[in-house]
Amino acid sequence: MLTATHQRLTNTHLPTPEPEHCPGPESENAGKSDACAGCANKEICESLPKGPDPDLPLINKRLANINHKVLVLSGKGGVGKSTFTSMLSWALAADPGLEIGAMDLDICGPSLPKMLGCENESIHASNSGWSPVYISDNLGMMSIQFLLPKEDSAIIWRGAKKNGLIKQFLKDVDWGQLDYLVIDTPPGTSDEHLSVTNYMKDAGIDGALIVTTPQEVALLDVRKEIDFCRKAGVKVLGIVENMSGFVCPNCGGESKIFKPTTGGGERLAKEMGLKFLGSVPLDPRIGKSCDSGESFLDLYPDSPACEAILDVVDALRDEIESEN
Protein backbone atom coordinates (compact mmCIF):
# COMPACT_ATOMS: atom_id res chain seq x y z
CA MET A 1 0.00 0.00 0.00
CA LEU A 2 2.84 2.31 0.85
CA THR A 3 4.56 2.02 -2.48
CA ALA A 4 1.39 2.99 -4.26
CA THR A 5 0.98 6.01 -2.03
CA HIS A 6 4.67 6.64 -2.19
CA GLN A 7 4.78 6.83 -5.92
CA ARG A 8 2.03 9.32 -5.93
CA LEU A 9 3.51 12.75 -6.44
CA THR A 10 0.61 14.93 -5.62
CA ASN A 11 -0.15 17.78 -7.93
CA THR A 12 -0.74 21.13 -6.32
CA HIS A 13 -2.98 22.62 -8.96
CA LEU A 14 -6.08 20.48 -8.56
CA PRO A 15 -9.15 22.60 -7.88
CA THR A 16 -10.85 20.19 -5.47
CA PRO A 17 -9.45 17.74 -2.92
CA GLU A 18 -8.70 14.27 -4.25
CA PRO A 19 -11.19 11.48 -3.44
CA GLU A 20 -10.23 8.89 -0.87
CA HIS A 21 -8.91 6.23 -3.22
CA CYS A 22 -7.33 8.65 -5.70
CA PRO A 23 -4.70 6.83 -7.76
CA GLY A 24 -2.65 10.03 -7.83
CA PRO A 25 -2.74 12.66 -10.56
CA GLU A 26 0.53 11.48 -12.04
CA SER A 27 -0.09 7.76 -11.96
CA GLU A 28 -0.78 5.67 -15.04
CA ASN A 29 -4.42 5.36 -14.07
CA ALA A 30 -4.99 9.05 -13.41
CA GLY A 31 -8.50 9.94 -14.47
CA LYS A 32 -9.30 6.34 -15.34
CA SER A 33 -9.61 4.42 -12.09
CA ASP A 34 -12.89 3.69 -10.30
CA ALA A 35 -12.34 6.48 -7.82
CA CYS A 36 -12.07 9.00 -10.65
CA ALA A 37 -15.69 8.58 -11.70
CA GLY A 38 -17.48 11.64 -10.44
CA CYS A 39 -14.32 13.42 -9.26
CA ALA A 40 -14.19 17.05 -10.30
CA ASN A 41 -10.50 16.71 -11.16
CA LYS A 42 -11.05 13.86 -13.63
CA GLU A 43 -10.51 15.84 -16.80
CA ILE A 44 -7.42 17.60 -15.53
CA CYS A 45 -5.90 14.34 -14.36
CA GLU A 46 -6.57 12.65 -17.69
CA SER A 47 -4.80 15.41 -19.56
CA LEU A 48 -1.79 15.68 -17.26
CA PRO A 49 1.54 14.52 -18.66
CA LYS A 50 2.39 11.03 -17.39
CA GLY A 51 5.73 9.59 -16.46
CA PRO A 52 8.38 10.49 -13.92
CA ASP A 53 8.26 13.87 -12.21
CA PRO A 54 10.26 16.37 -14.30
CA ASP A 55 11.34 18.15 -11.11
CA LEU A 56 13.23 15.17 -9.72
CA PRO A 57 16.42 15.75 -11.76
CA LEU A 58 16.41 19.38 -10.57
CA ILE A 59 16.12 18.27 -6.95
CA ASN A 60 18.92 15.77 -7.41
CA LYS A 61 21.12 18.46 -8.91
CA ARG A 62 20.50 20.79 -5.97
CA LEU A 63 21.17 18.11 -3.39
CA ALA A 64 24.27 16.77 -5.13
CA ASN A 65 26.37 19.42 -3.37
CA ILE A 66 25.30 18.26 0.08
CA ASN A 67 27.43 15.56 1.68
CA HIS A 68 25.18 14.36 4.45
CA LYS A 69 21.44 14.63 4.77
CA VAL A 70 19.89 13.80 8.11
CA LEU A 71 16.18 13.70 8.99
CA VAL A 72 15.07 14.39 12.55
CA LEU A 73 11.92 12.37 13.13
CA SER A 74 9.51 11.35 15.84
CA GLY A 75 5.97 10.09 15.69
CA LYS A 76 5.12 12.18 18.73
CA GLY A 77 4.87 15.94 18.96
CA GLY A 78 6.66 18.08 21.52
CA VAL A 79 9.40 15.59 22.31
CA GLY A 80 12.16 17.95 21.16
CA LYS A 81 12.65 17.40 17.43
CA SER A 82 13.14 21.09 16.74
CA THR A 83 15.14 21.60 19.90
CA PHE A 84 17.42 18.78 18.91
CA THR A 85 17.66 19.99 15.33
CA SER A 86 18.74 23.39 16.60
CA MET A 87 21.26 21.85 19.01
CA LEU A 88 22.64 19.63 16.30
CA SER A 89 22.97 22.62 13.96
CA TRP A 90 24.70 24.76 16.61
CA ALA A 91 27.01 21.91 17.59
CA LEU A 92 28.02 21.11 14.03
CA ALA A 93 28.42 24.78 13.12
CA ALA A 94 30.80 25.22 16.05
CA ASP A 95 33.35 23.60 13.76
CA PRO A 96 34.31 26.46 11.41
CA GLY A 97 35.42 23.97 8.79
CA LEU A 98 31.90 22.67 8.24
CA GLU A 99 29.03 24.20 6.27
CA ILE A 100 25.63 23.44 7.80
CA GLY A 101 22.06 23.88 6.60
CA ALA A 102 18.90 23.44 8.65
CA MET A 103 15.57 22.95 6.92
CA ASP A 104 12.21 23.14 8.69
CA LEU A 105 9.50 20.99 7.11
CA ASP A 106 6.94 21.65 9.81
CA ILE A 107 4.63 23.76 7.68
CA CYS A 108 1.80 24.28 10.16
CA GLY A 109 3.96 24.89 13.22
CA PRO A 110 7.45 26.05 12.29
CA SER A 111 9.56 26.47 15.46
CA LEU A 112 13.10 26.28 14.15
CA PRO A 113 13.45 29.99 13.19
CA LYS A 114 12.58 31.06 16.72
CA MET A 115 14.99 28.57 18.24
CA LEU A 116 17.80 29.71 15.99
CA GLY A 117 16.93 33.34 16.63
CA CYS A 118 16.00 34.43 13.14
CA GLU A 119 12.18 34.44 13.02
CA ASN A 120 11.90 37.96 11.65
CA GLU A 121 14.09 37.44 8.61
CA SER A 122 12.76 37.03 5.12
CA ILE A 123 13.96 35.09 2.13
CA HIS A 124 15.63 36.63 -0.88
CA ALA A 125 15.23 35.10 -4.28
CA SER A 126 17.90 35.45 -6.91
CA ASN A 127 18.35 33.83 -10.28
CA SER A 128 20.23 30.96 -8.63
CA GLY A 129 17.29 30.25 -6.34
CA TRP A 130 16.08 31.15 -2.83
CA SER A 131 18.88 32.17 -0.51
CA PRO A 132 18.68 30.59 2.93
CA VAL A 133 18.74 32.83 5.99
CA TYR A 134 22.22 32.79 7.51
CA ILE A 135 22.50 32.68 11.29
CA SER A 136 26.28 32.58 11.23
CA ASP A 137 28.93 32.27 8.52
CA ASN A 138 28.49 28.55 8.18
CA LEU A 139 24.90 27.98 9.30
CA GLY A 140 21.98 28.67 6.98
CA MET A 141 18.35 27.81 7.40
CA MET A 142 15.03 27.65 5.55
CA SER A 143 11.52 27.63 6.93
CA ILE A 144 8.02 28.59 5.86
CA GLN A 145 8.03 31.11 8.71
CA PHE A 146 10.14 33.42 6.50
CA LEU A 147 7.38 33.48 3.90
CA LEU A 148 4.57 34.47 6.25
CA PRO A 149 3.18 38.00 6.36
CA LYS A 150 2.69 37.91 10.13
CA GLU A 151 4.24 35.80 12.84
CA ASP A 152 0.92 34.32 13.85
CA SER A 153 -0.55 33.72 10.39
CA ALA A 154 -2.04 30.24 10.25
CA ILE A 155 -1.15 27.96 7.37
CA ILE A 156 -4.36 26.08 6.78
CA TRP A 157 -3.20 23.82 4.01
CA ARG A 158 -4.17 20.37 2.93
CA GLY A 159 -1.44 17.84 2.22
CA ALA A 160 -1.14 18.48 -1.50
CA LYS A 161 -0.24 22.10 -0.98
CA LYS A 162 2.31 21.24 1.66
CA ASN A 163 3.92 18.78 -0.72
CA GLY A 164 4.27 21.55 -3.28
CA LEU A 165 6.14 23.73 -0.83
CA ILE A 166 8.41 20.90 0.28
CA LYS A 167 9.27 20.24 -3.31
CA GLN A 168 10.09 23.90 -3.76
CA PHE A 169 12.30 23.88 -0.68
CA LEU A 170 14.25 20.98 -2.11
CA LYS A 171 14.35 22.27 -5.67
CA ASP A 172 14.80 26.00 -5.30
CA VAL A 173 16.88 26.68 -2.19
CA ASP A 174 20.40 27.60 -3.08
CA TRP A 175 22.37 25.97 -0.26
CA GLY A 176 25.68 25.98 -2.09
CA GLN A 177 28.17 23.41 -0.86
CA LEU A 178 27.07 21.85 2.45
CA ASP A 179 28.60 19.25 4.73
CA TYR A 180 25.38 18.61 6.61
CA LEU A 181 21.74 19.32 5.91
CA VAL A 182 19.61 18.71 9.00
CA ILE A 183 15.91 18.39 8.26
CA ASP A 184 13.35 19.02 11.01
CA THR A 185 9.96 17.36 10.50
CA PRO A 186 6.46 17.65 11.96
CA PRO A 187 5.06 14.80 14.09
CA GLY A 188 3.23 11.94 12.42
CA THR A 189 3.62 9.80 9.33
CA SER A 190 1.84 11.64 6.63
CA ASP A 191 2.24 13.93 3.64
CA GLU A 192 5.39 15.76 4.72
CA HIS A 193 7.20 12.55 5.56
CA LEU A 194 6.15 10.73 2.43
CA SER A 195 7.05 13.68 0.25
CA VAL A 196 10.48 14.34 1.65
CA THR A 197 11.54 10.70 1.54
CA ASN A 198 10.03 10.37 -1.89
CA TYR A 199 11.64 13.45 -3.43
CA MET A 200 15.01 12.69 -1.85
CA LYS A 201 15.08 9.03 -2.78
CA ASP A 202 17.56 9.41 -5.63
CA ALA A 203 19.68 12.05 -3.92
CA GLY A 204 19.96 9.74 -0.92
CA ILE A 205 19.24 10.34 2.76
CA ASP A 206 22.02 9.31 5.16
CA GLY A 207 19.45 8.39 7.72
CA ALA A 208 17.05 9.48 10.40
CA LEU A 209 17.61 10.50 13.97
CA ILE A 210 14.62 9.47 16.08
CA VAL A 211 13.77 11.59 19.10
CA THR A 212 11.59 10.26 21.88
CA THR A 213 10.69 10.93 25.50
CA PRO A 214 10.80 8.13 28.09
CA GLN A 215 7.11 7.38 28.64
CA GLU A 216 5.19 4.69 26.77
CA VAL A 217 2.63 7.11 25.28
CA ALA A 218 5.49 8.66 23.31
CA LEU A 219 7.21 5.37 22.54
CA LEU A 220 3.97 4.07 21.07
CA ASP A 221 4.04 6.76 18.39
CA VAL A 222 7.79 6.48 17.92
CA ARG A 223 7.41 2.77 17.12
CA LYS A 224 5.11 3.81 14.29
CA GLU A 225 7.70 6.24 12.99
CA ILE A 226 10.36 3.52 12.98
CA ASP A 227 7.93 1.29 11.12
CA PHE A 228 7.53 4.10 8.61
CA CYS A 229 11.32 4.40 8.18
CA ARG A 230 11.48 0.67 7.45
CA LYS A 231 8.73 0.92 4.86
CA ALA A 232 10.18 4.02 3.24
CA GLY A 233 13.69 2.58 3.18
CA VAL A 234 15.24 5.25 5.40
CA LYS A 235 18.04 4.05 7.63
CA VAL A 236 17.58 4.81 11.34
CA LEU A 237 20.87 6.27 12.60
CA GLY A 238 19.82 6.02 16.19
CA ILE A 239 17.41 6.95 18.96
CA VAL A 240 17.90 9.78 21.41
CA GLU A 241 15.84 10.02 24.58
CA ASN A 242 14.98 13.58 25.52
CA MET A 243 13.49 14.91 28.79
CA SER A 244 14.80 11.94 30.74
CA GLY A 245 15.03 12.98 34.36
CA PHE A 246 15.08 16.37 35.96
CA VAL A 247 17.62 17.63 38.47
CA CYS A 248 16.18 20.23 40.83
CA PRO A 249 18.35 23.35 40.67
CA ASN A 250 17.56 24.04 44.32
CA CYS A 251 18.41 20.77 46.07
CA GLY A 252 20.02 18.69 43.34
CA GLY A 253 17.50 15.89 43.84
CA GLU A 254 16.58 13.97 40.72
CA SER A 255 13.01 13.28 39.61
CA LYS A 256 11.75 11.20 36.74
CA ILE A 257 9.01 13.45 35.40
CA PHE A 258 8.20 11.23 32.44
CA LYS A 259 8.74 7.76 33.86
CA PRO A 260 10.26 5.13 31.59
CA THR A 261 8.03 2.34 32.90
CA THR A 262 8.53 0.29 29.77
CA GLY A 263 12.27 0.88 29.66
CA GLY A 264 12.30 4.16 27.73
CA GLY A 265 14.29 4.88 24.60
CA GLU A 266 17.08 2.50 25.47
CA ARG A 267 14.84 -0.56 25.68
CA LEU A 268 13.06 0.47 22.51
CA ALA A 269 16.40 0.70 20.69
CA LYS A 270 17.34 -2.75 21.90
CA GLU A 271 13.97 -4.21 20.95
CA MET A 272 14.19 -2.80 17.45
CA GLY A 273 17.88 -3.57 16.97
CA LEU A 274 18.78 0.12 16.69
CA LYS A 275 21.55 2.19 18.13
CA PHE A 276 20.81 4.18 21.29
CA LEU A 277 22.66 7.46 21.06
CA GLY A 278 22.09 8.72 24.58
CA SER A 279 19.66 10.52 26.83
CA VAL A 280 19.35 14.23 27.52
CA PRO A 281 17.97 15.44 30.87
CA LEU A 282 15.36 18.18 31.29
CA ASP A 283 16.92 21.56 31.98
CA PRO A 284 14.74 24.69 32.23
CA ARG A 285 17.56 26.66 30.60
CA ILE A 286 17.17 24.69 27.36
CA GLY A 287 13.61 25.93 26.94
CA LYS A 288 14.64 29.44 27.85
CA SER A 289 17.49 29.61 25.35
CA CYS A 290 15.19 28.16 22.67
CA ASP A 291 12.70 30.93 23.38
CA SER A 292 15.37 33.60 23.08
CA GLY A 293 17.00 32.00 20.04
CA GLU A 294 20.40 31.61 21.63
CA SER A 295 22.65 28.59 21.64
CA PHE A 296 22.23 26.66 24.88
CA LEU A 297 25.53 24.93 24.17
CA ASP A 298 27.38 28.27 24.11
CA LEU A 299 25.58 29.74 27.11
CA TYR A 300 25.93 26.82 29.51
CA PRO A 301 28.83 24.70 28.28
CA ASP A 302 29.36 23.17 31.74
CA SER A 303 25.83 21.92 32.33
CA PRO A 304 25.18 18.16 32.35
CA ALA A 305 22.54 18.59 29.62
CA CYS A 306 25.10 20.27 27.37
CA GLU A 307 27.52 17.39 27.83
CA ALA A 308 24.78 14.89 27.12
CA ILE A 309 23.79 16.71 23.93
CA LEU A 310 27.36 16.89 22.66
CA ASP A 311 27.83 13.17 23.38
CA VAL A 312 24.76 12.41 21.30
CA VAL A 313 25.98 14.64 18.48
CA ASP A 314 29.36 12.88 18.51
CA ALA A 315 27.74 9.46 18.47
CA LEU A 316 25.53 10.57 15.59
CA ARG A 317 28.46 11.90 13.58
CA ASP A 318 30.37 8.67 14.10
CA GLU A 319 27.38 6.76 12.85
CA ILE A 320 27.01 8.97 9.76
CA GLU A 321 30.64 9.08 8.87
CA SER A 322 31.26 5.37 9.39
CA GLU A 323 28.82 4.89 6.53
CA ASN A 324 31.13 6.46 4.00
Binding site: T5, T189, R223, F228
Partner: peptide, 15 residues
Protein backbone atom coordinates in the same frame (compact mmCIF):
# COMPACT_ATOMS: atom_id res chain seq x y z
CA UNK B 1 -0.41 -4.36 15.78
CA UNK B 2 0.20 -1.41 18.06
CA UNK B 3 3.53 -0.72 16.37
CA UNK B 4 2.03 -0.49 12.89
CA UNK B 5 2.33 2.88 11.22
CA UNK B 6 -0.53 4.57 9.43
CA UNK B 7 1.14 6.23 6.45
CA UNK B 8 -1.65 8.18 4.85
CA UNK B 9 -1.79 11.28 2.79
CA UNK B 10 -4.45 13.93 3.30
CA UNK B 11 -7.36 12.57 1.21
CA UNK B 12 -7.32 9.26 3.01
CA UNK B 13 -7.23 10.98 6.39
CA UNK B 14 -10.16 13.16 5.34
CA UNK B 15 -12.09 10.05 4.32
Amino acid sequence: DRGNSVVWRGPKKTG
